[in-house]
């Protein structure tokens, strides 16, 4: 199990629009496929991704079976203050991953 990969600019000007990129390792098994011996492969996907900026939720995404393996989610936000961005992925079979990145706003 690898760490998620986060790309957040280390510094930004107040009010600047910043791009945040996230990549996580996950099989995203859709639950519709059969194995080579005909057994249905149970669904195993990430169902939810949340980003919080200093505790305040700024982005949320629900993920579905049609999303590819190793989902890459990128979005924009406005840099308002220096602080920590917390990213949380939750999914089937108790999957949960959290990663943090800090940003300095001047």
């Amino acid at each position: 199990m690898t760490r998620p990969l986060i790309n957040v600019p280390a510094r930004a000007k107040r009010g600047q629009v910043i791009e945040i990129k996230t990549l996580i390792s996950h099989v995203m098994e859709p639950g519709f496929r059969h194995s080579s011996i005909g057994v249905l492969l149970p669904r195993d996907i990430i169902t939810e991704f949340v980003c919080a900026y200093d505790g305040e939720e700024i982005f949320r995404a629900d993920l579905f079976p049609a999303i590819s393996a190793n989902p890459f989610v990128t979005f924009h936000t406005v840099a308002t203050k220096s602080g920590t961005l917390t990213f949380t992925w939750t999914g089937d079979n108790g999957f949960s991953a959290t990663e943090q990145a800090s940003i300095t706003v001047e």
Partner: peptide, 17 residues
Amino acid sequence: DDDTANPATLWVLEGET
């Protein structure tokens, strides 16, 4: 080209570990 968008980076980091 972008290491943070290239999914193979996940394997590279695991390989480094």
